[in-house]
Amino acid sequence: MSQRTRFALKTAVWEACLLPLALLVYRFQTDALGANPIEYVTRTLGDWTLRILLASLSMTPLRLLFGISWPMSLRRLLGLFAFFYVCLHFSVWIVVDHFFDWEQLIADVFKRPYITVGVLALTLLVPLAATSTTRMVKWLGGATWRRLHKLVYVAAVLGVLHYVWLAKKGVVDPFIYAGVLGVLLGIRLWDWARRLATRRWHHAETESVIRRLLADGG
């Protein structure tokens, strides 16, 4: 892929990821956030956190399924945007929804399972965002960095669980997110099992060749 295409692609991702926020600001200014604006803003920011996080988790499966590598260059950008939206989501909850009522906020974190897993998911994303720069990848070393960034799977599962547990009966969206996440993780699992099997087969093959050679020699 040419430098120019890559630039265009990244610009498109920037625009797509900033669009939901721009829409919220526009709705705020035109008084179109509905009867319960705080609830609407919180929910919208949470929705986009999950959507962008799932998008970032779709890049590797695209490579695995279709053998294309360019999506990999968008992983970091998408991951950082997911982190950006979750920070906004969390800030609105603290500042606008509860207006720094720390006593209530902290009690809720420990008492309400959906908030517990939500805060946990956010916490897990912090070290990932902090080690997202190329310099940090080098400093940590590729293997360590990759191991650390497996935390994103845990964060995604907790994030979806957060939505499943808070949603009222009859709302299907959280289960759609859960289904998509299941597929994305499933593809990785399938790839992992496939590679393991190939490696085993290679081992067995090598072994039998050696054995045959030894037998011939003897």
Partner: peptide, 14 residues
């Protein structure tokens, strides 16, 4: 799943 101690009156901020 949530506290009933407070409520948001529609149209109010706090």
């Amino acid at each position: 799943r949530w506290s009933q101690a407070t409520e948001r009156r529609i149209g109010e901020f706090r």
